[in-house]
Write a protein that binds this DNA or RNA. Structure first.
Lengths: 371, 371
DNA sequence: CTGAAAGCGCTTACAG
DNA sequence: CTGAAAGCGCTTACAG
């Protein structure tokens, strides 16, 4: 396995030095510490460097200095809108501060997280671990080797960014109470993630404060389908509003309601969380904004700022999500929607170029959501 | 700026050699070419390596061999569902083949693409460039230095993966014609991307073949909002169905129709493209599947396979997108929908924890879509 | 202000 | 089958 030799090798510092008539050290300084050189020297070196198309080799630099100039972002699923937004914020911030970003998708597994952390360790100066699935001892093991900042996991002594959506959910319950709802549901994730737990608690507490009856429903792995599937349970419970662990599930709930001929917010109110896709549904979702992009950027800042200090990052940074009220919440209906049977789901047919259309399951995975 | 010294330095090959009583060369071979060594030696070395927690330093290895073991994926917007899915497929395939992935988000700008390509060049063995905004000469310049595979850009002599959605759009037009539609619209991107051009041509040709009247509408930068905004133009044009450049725009069109009290597919039919979010809307979108994840994986394969050959990748790999029929397409209405004025858009209010709710624009960027 | 030289942690012909 | 040694392309005390 040879690297395609047809690609000419990049010019090195030695060539630039020779062409400019200076030493390698001078070329190096022209790039990394120009203030140590005469402006004329810097100009001369940079000029010939540009002419030759020279760019400092980051790999050699990393080996020499011990600093890679890279970070890695490890997350459970890049296709999930929450993580996409987070990634966008993190990558942009890292770039702005001169760092390149490795992307590691753990496919929701703790094992892959562990492997990725190990493989990338030598090439990065630190990690941002979003909603890690890894158990605490392993996270701490990796954090002992390289600086680590986690997002949405509260680990004492490890740098972390926590998105506090509790107040947003509290506000959402208050909104529903004000609209006359008396029985509501929280639709959450299974082995409660830190985020889902937090949201469930906020709903329970606020519900009690307003004298509402609150049922908790476990949707399983949060996905559009999971949301749709739990609509039966919502009808059974006799509630008139649901707060979901995230927008994907909320959107699924809206689809399930529509299949039963129920309208939102006329017959039922729905609240989501994250506020990434919430503005694009119809009706647009009332949702708790999780400031995903900001969380990603803050995590990168926390990590990079830590490089300048002797101790690893250990601070915890809390971001508060606010409620954004849109069109999926309205006055409580006169009575809870009847247990309407679902209509047959809309047909899905995959047509090829050939006239014969054949029914098949879509190959692309559902954009699902677990945080 | 020092790297946090509290993180103990990783053990090196020298330490392992000393501890195992062998030379560095032997330790190196135990990891990279164990077949050259006695099984006993390999075992001894690997054992002490494990005991010391030694992992080969990828940076040193890269400098020495000239192979980084990394690739970079450059794309216009990670928050766009199309690219998220593509990224997922690419990253997973690279991992499967032993490569780590750098992520570069160009934020839709040609300049950032250029910079990222330059900065990452030394750290990667090649690039996957998805829907590049860069002009052809610059792409060729970079491709002359490092292997490059582009996605959805047809550049002779450069490795590329092209998703051909033409047949899918042709099938979609046939579907609409069969449902009795006589006047349809294609809603595309502005400075036509390769993808949008291709789709527009397919719609025009198929429309002519079926004797339909076809209008082309430019939605500007493809986004949910752009889709919603062009509904007025659709009404004006008197069409009864629209095919959109992607699902995000299609979803926007559905929202705009809903705001006017028009139902899909009763009053109007909508077709999208990409098939990532199509299954999650209500009604679920009929959409041309763009096999995004597969495109990403194929691009990585094309790139990595090229490393084994002397010449850079130059093949072009075409993936055909098929039409997936769901609930947003139906029989043509008796007559084109009247020019109903839009109702006031659903209110958006952001509520803080404090009782006073204040109206503000959401901070998160709209997940938009340009490919 | 500039240069000669050692060193970062590996790999790999070249000997033996 | 194993080792001594050069080299990958930089950076950085150390001299001058």
């Amino acid at each position: 396995m040879t690297n395609a030799p047809s690609h000419r090798p990049a010019p090195t510092i030695r060539l630039v030095a020779r062409e400019a008539g200076v030493s390698q050290a001078t070329v190096s300084r022209a790039f990394s510490q120009p203030e140590l050189l005469t402006p004329a020297t810097v100009e001369k070196v940079l000029g010939t460097a540009r002419r030759l198309g020279y760019v400092p080799n980051q790999v050699a630099r990393a080996l020499s200095t011990g600093r890679a100039g890279n970070i890695a972002l490890i997350l459970p699923d890049v296709a999930n809108p929450f993580f996409s937004a987070l990634m966008r914020g993190a990558q942009a911030q890292a770039y702005k501060r001169g760092y390149a970003t490795f992307l590691g998708d753990s496919d929701e597994t703790a094992h892959l997280e562990d492997v990725l952390l190990g493989k990338l360790a030598a090439q990065v100066d630190g990690f941002v671990l979003a909603s890690p699935r890894l158990d605490e001892p392993l996270i701490r093991k990796h954090a002992a080797r390289k600086p680590v900042v986690v997002i949405n996991r509260d680990l004492e002594g490890i740098g972390r960014v926590l998105v506090d959506t509790g107040p947003g959910f509290t506000a959402a319950v208050a909104l529903l109470a004000g609209l006359g709802h008396r029985a509501i549901a929280y639709v959450g994730a299974p082995r409660s993630s830190w985020s889902s737990q937090q949201r469930a608690r906020a709903v329970a507490a606020a519900g009690a404060a307003h004298g509402l009856s609150v049922v908790q429903i476990d949707a399983g792995r949060p996905s559009h389908e999971a949301g749709r599937d739990c609509v039966a349970a919502l009808m059974e419970a006799g509630v008139t509003a649901a707060l979901a662990v995230d927008d994907v599930v909320a959107q699924g709930i809206m689809a399930g309601l529509a299949e039963r001929g129920l309208s939102v917010p006329g017959d039922f109110s729905v609240v989501g969380c994250d506020d990434i896709i919430a503005a694009t549904t119809y009706p647009p979702l009332t949702s708790v904004n999780a400031r995903c992009a900001i969380a990603g950027a803050n995590a990168v800042d926390l990590l990079l700022n830590g490089f300048a200090t002797p101790a690893p990052p250990t601070a915890s940074h809390v971001i508060t999500g606010e409620l954004v009220i849109r069109g999926s919440t309205g006055p409580a209906p006169a009575q809870a929607p009847a247990r309407t049977p679902a209509r047959a789901p809309a047909q899905t047919i995959r047509a090829s170029r050939r006239p014969s259309a054949k029914a098949r399951a879509p190959a692309e995975p559902d954009p699902s959501s677990r945080k």
